[in-house]
Structure formats: C-alpha cells, structure tokens
C-alpha cells in the first residue's frame, strides 16, 4: 500500500510532507509525492523548482521510507493529478495541506483541498499549520 502526498514548496507543503512521512513509517508502506503545474503562468510558486525538487528528494531519502516523486507539467488541475496518482498506486491514504480561507476567497479561488476531500476514494489526512499569533 501507498501514501500519496500533494507537495507544494512552502511551509504548509513541508508540514504535509512531514505528516506523510510519519504515516508511511507507521503504516510501513511507501510514499509518492505529487507536485505538478499547469504551466499557464510565468511564475508558479506552487511548482517545485529544480533546487527545491532536489531538497525534496534528499529529505525523502533521509527519511528511509521507500519513495517516488511525481513532478511534471500537467494539463489537469493539481487536485486531479493527486487523485489520479492515488488511484494508480492504489493509495490507502492521501495527505494534503489545508489553508485558512475566508468564504469569499473560497468562492473565487476554488480549492484543491476541497476537491481532493470530496472525490478521494480513500482516507484523506488534511494537515493544517498552527494559526500565527
């Protein structure tokens, strides 16, 4: 069995990754990190650049968990990429980061996390960052 984590190169993504590594260890299964971009803008901060991808791999390497990284340019939304990966590997758990959002922001921006939560065929672990004081 496998744990799939939707990775984003920021604080929240790192938190989700930590949780995913812990889960994979506890469950004794391997880990698939998914990071994609639709490549529809000049700058996409949610897509790991080369240096960040290397950092991700070395972190996974150090964790000792068997892992794979899926980082590619996709025509689909990030949520669909995570779900596709989960179906393909028959994931038993998906780990995602969940941001704080106001209702208006929610309406406009939609939410990757929401689609994953609604459409996943397995359990989903939503990781939150502690609110800043």
């Amino acid at each position: 069995m496998t744990v799939v984590v939707g990775y984003v190169p920021n604080e929240l993504g790192e938190a989700a990754l930590s949780a995913a590594i812990d889960e994979a260890r506890r469950r004794g299964c391997d880990l698939v990190a998914v990071n994609t971009t639709r490549a529809d803008r000049l700058v996409d901060p949610r897509y790991a650049q080369d240096a960040q991808a290397e950092a991700l791999e070395s972190r996974l390497e150090a964790s000792g968990v068997p892992y794979a990284v899926r980082r590619f340019t996709s025509t689909e939304l990030a949520a669909d990429d995570v779900l596709t990966a989960a179906t393909e590997v028959g994931a038993e758990l998906i780990v995602i980061g969940l941001r704080h959002r106001s209702p208006v922001g929610k309406l406009l921006m939609g939410s990757t996390a929401q689609s994953v939560l609604l459409d996943a065929e397995c359990s989903v672990l939503a990781v939150k960052l502690p609110r800043r004081r």
Partner: peptide, 12 residues
C-alpha cells in the same frame, strides 16, 4: 485559452 475549471472562468 485553457482556464480550468470552466465555472470559475464564468464567475470571474
């Protein structure tokens, strides 16, 4: 031009 999902483009 590639916006997804389509309903968000309509709202905007």
């Amino acid at each position: 031009l590639g916006a997804k999902p389509w309903w968000r483009a309509i709202v905007i």
